[in-house]
Design a protein around this nucleic acid. Structure first.
Length: 105
DNA sequence: AACCTGACTTCGG
DNA sequence: TCCGAAGCCAGGT
């Protein structure tokens, strides 16, 4: 079956509900590799458009948008707010309120 | 096959 | 609390 890390990451990403966010590490963990956060980044770069992945719902463990101003930050912020996720001017997002808590299944 | 790189994470000073 | 260094792992060169 298709259970390689990359596939699992894509699946995890697609499970993130609208209006919620997840951290890179969280996605990696769901895909079975707790330390694979960097791979998640790689996958987003290589397949976010092709596979329609909700890349904007992924932020770093600090609860911040990982992109820099002028390099996607504004776009991600806009996409999130269009889903009713409040993003502070600093790029911080309240994880307590918006982090996706997937249920084990 | 070795080496480099990255939208990360964690730990120590 | 802030900053830098080290650890991590898969895909591209």
């Amino acid at each position: 079956m298709t259970s390689d890390f990359t596939t699992l990451v894509k699946r995890a990403l697609k499970r993130i509900p609208k209006g919620k966010v997840a951290t890179y590490g969280q996605i990696a963990e769901l895909a079975g590799s707790p330390r694979g956060a960097r791979q998640v980044v790689r996958i987003l770069h290589s397949s976010s458009e092709r596979d329609n992945l909700p890349w904007h719902r992924v932020i770093n463990s600090q609860g911040h948008i990982a992109l820099k101003r002028g390099q996607g930050f504004e776009l991600q912020q806009a996409l999130l707010e269009s889903e009713d996720v409040f993003v502070e001017a600093s790029g911080h997002i309240d994880l307590k309120r918006y982090q996706w808590r997937p249920r084990a299944r």
